[in-house]
């Protein structure tokens, strides 16, 4: 099956104080129709930059896509003219952000913001768009949608704002929804509501979701496939169920083991020693070697490649749990 979105050798860098730093290095992945792909990693791993690169929203300067292609409907998004890109953005590929308060415009009503993309992309009349906005707000579970449509973002609670954001993103029934840490700013009970909503909408609309998150719990709840990133690189790509059962990359294993468990008791938590290398560090061998408990001298000299078949790839010379 042809993927709906194909990222090839994406490299994105930023101009910093001390020269250019590469936030995403040579990243490739595919997103299929109806699939939820989670991009996980800790802060600074390049997952958000990946999302922004796809939508061509990297602030330039200081940022720039140095290399690579992003294929969507036989077009390379990195080479699209600004006008054409605007037609894709919000219409075919939509995005929801972490902080619903700052991503909604405080001076317009929620309804107006949902209607905007309908009017721009679908040439709807105002009246039709208003009706559509009400039904969208209903579908994302906002109570009293007829009233909420005329409210301003600050009059809504955090969870309701995130629902309104989702309604905005879904207005044009996009093919791909990019969700950048959609529940990180929310409380657990509200997070559960939003996760549930995303799952239901995904089933209903059969769209593809690119989920950017650091929370393994959220990944387990939503994702079909998982791409683990570390220090700008993809280190493991697996089916979600397999990844949680038997991680191949030592970093993935460490990440899973450091989560305090609700079901088991440990006296001491497993942790990955040290911290992520500075983003501008040029490392000859494996970028994780310094923190890896399985690392051999070989790892520090030879850079591993992301290898494997279509369903399972890992960037490690001594991958774990591989028969």
């Amino acid at each position: 099956m042809k993927p709906i979105l194909k990222v090839e050798n994406l490299t994105t860098s930023f101009q910093g104080e001390e020269g250019r730093v590469t936030a995403v290095r040579n990243l490739s992945f595919e997103l299929h129709k109806g699939e939820t792909l989670a991009v996980v990693g800790e802060s600074g791993c390049g997952k958000s930059v990946t999302a922004l690169s796809i939508l061509n929203l990297i602030p330039n300067p200081p940022g720039k896509i140095d290399n690579g292609c992003i294929w969507f409907e036989d077009r390379d998004l990195t080479r699209l003219r600004k006008r054409d890109m605007r037609k894709v953005r919000g219409n075919q590929i939509a995005m929801i952000f972490q902080e619903p308060m700052t991503s909604l415009n405080p001076v317009f009503t929620v309804g107006r913001q949902v209607m905007d993309s309908l009017i721009i992309h679908q040439n709807m009349t105002k009246k039709k768009a208003h009706a559509a906005a009400v039904s969208l707000l209903t579908s994302v579970g906002i109570p009293e949608p007829e009233l909420t449509v005329d409210r301003y973002p600050h009059q809504l609670s955090g969870g309701m704002r995130q629902r309104a954001m989702i309604a905005m993103a879904l207005a044009c029934r996009p093919d791909i929804l990019i969700a950048d840490e959609p529940t990180t700013a929310l409380d657990v009970t509200i997070q559960a509501q939003i996760l549930n909503l995303l799952r239901n909408l995904h089933d209903e609309m059969n769209m593809s979701i690119l989920l950017i998150t650091h929370d393994m719990g959220v990944v387990a709840q939503l994702a079909d496939h998982v791409l683990v990133m570390y220090a700008g690189e993809a280190v493991e790509y697996r089916k979600s169920k397999e990844l949680f059962k038997s991680p191949h990359h030592p970093y993935t294993e460490g990440l899973l083991k450091s989560i305090p468990s609700l079901t088991e008791d440990h006296l001491v938590l497993y942790n990955i020693p040290g911290s992520v290398p500075p983003i501008h560090a040029e490392i000859e061998g494996c970028r994780f070697a310094d923190r890896c408990s399985y690392a051999q001298p070989y790892c520090r000299e030879h850079k591993p490649e992301l290898e494997g078949d279509r369903e399972s790839k890992v960037r490690c010379h001594f991958a774990l749990n591989v028969t």
């Binding site: 104080e17 936030a23 802060s43 390049g46 930059v49 922004l52």
Partner: peptide
Amino acid sequence: LKNLKIGESQ
């Protein structure tokens, strides 16, 4: 401006 954050847009 000095600590221009690069990477995550958090």
